[in-house]
């Protein structure tokens, strides 16, 4: 079981979290009139990295916040976590 450092609550067991996919995927606004390629990239294109991966988690059974984690997908080592909107 992963021990995930929630940026609000501190390290907590994986059972309290839900996974939210790759982090830092920018959602184009409707007003920006995104091209089909831009919209397609937002909707479907993901990196599927081997190695360091920035991903979203939600402390759904804790403080309920979404946040970001940098995890090594080969070792499950978590290098850091930070709040949504931070880099």
């Amino acid at each position: 079981m992963l021990i995930i450092p929630c940026p609000y609550c501190g390290p907590r067991p994986e059972l309290e979290f839900s996974y939210g996919g790759q982090a830092h995927v920018t959602r184009p606004t409707a007003a920006s009139n995104p091209s089909p390629a831009e919209w397609n990239a937002f909707q479907y294109e993901r990196a599927n990295l081997k190695g360091l991966h920035a991903e979203r988690w939600r402390h759904i059974h804790g403080c309920a916040r979404f946040f970001n984690v940098v995890r090594d997908t080969t070792t499950d080592e978590i290098l850091r976590s930070y709040r949504s909107g931070e880099k």
């Binding site: 979404f66 949504s84 909107g85």
Partner: peptide
């Protein structure tokens, strides 16, 4: 509720 929270927290905080 989860989807609403996702948009609220990460798109329109």
């Amino acid at each position: 509720l989860g989807m609403m929270e996702d948009y609220l927290q990460t798109e329109w905080p």
